[in-house]
Every structure is written in C-alpha cells, then in structure tokens.
C-alpha cells in the first residue's frame, strides 16, 4: 500500500549525499514502496535539510528486519560509550 504515514524527528548532525557532506536537520521514517530495494515495501529513512533543498537527502530503504536491527545497534552503540560523549552538550 501507499502509506502517507510518516514519522518525523528533528536531528542534529551531518550526512553525506550526492553533492557531499551537509548538515542534516530532519529525519523521516515511513513504510512504503522503495525506489531501488528489490521489495514491494520497505522501511524508508530519509535524512534531510529542507533549507538546502530536496537534493540534500541521504536515503535508506531497509527491510523491517534490517531497520529494527539498525535501531538496536544504534542503542547498543550509544549505551556502550561513555554517557554524554556524543551528546549535543558534549565537552570538547
């Protein structure tokens, strides 16, 4: 199905797109048809910077197993590092 349901989250960091690195400000997550992955539906994750235009996008199309494993890996990675070391309020 074509879902319009989209989870949006504000993000702080950088991504590398077709034109190189850029700051990312938003991420969207939605289950819909992929453009490239060989499946009928995938979990699609876009990292965006709308202020820089539609081409400022890093896109992923993952199976649900892969997406959930990625979410677990992100949590495991953060938990295993010293608390706050990668925070927006980190000491440098």
């Amino acid at each position: 199905m074509c879902t319009y349901q989209t989870e949006k989250v504000a993000v702080d960091g950088s991504g590398k797109g077709a034109q190189g690195w850029f700051p990312v400000s938003d991420a969207t997550v939605y289950v819909d048809h992929p453009v490239h992955a060989p499946y009928g539906h995938t979990v699609n994750i876009d990292f965006l910077n709308p202020a820089l235009g539609p081409s400022s996008r890093v896109a992923l199309e993952l199976t649900e197993e892969a997406a959930l494993a990625l979410a677990d890996a992100i949590r495991a990675s953060v938990v295993s590092a010293p608390a706050g070391i990668a925070s927006a309020n980190q000491k440098v």
Binding site: V35, L48, G53, P54, R57
Partner: peptide, 20 residues
C-alpha cells in the same frame, strides 16, 4: 514547485514529507 530540477526520488521525498 517544491523541487525544480531535483531527481524524481528526492522530489517525491520532499513532497511526501510536506504532506502531498
């Protein structure tokens, strides 16, 4: 309007995020 000159997949993602 939203994505002049953008690749079709990037344009679709931008319009989708904006609500269609």
């Amino acid at each position: 309007r939203e994505a002049p000159g953008a690749a079709p997949d990037d344009a679709a993602a931008a319009v989708r995020a904006a609500g269609g």
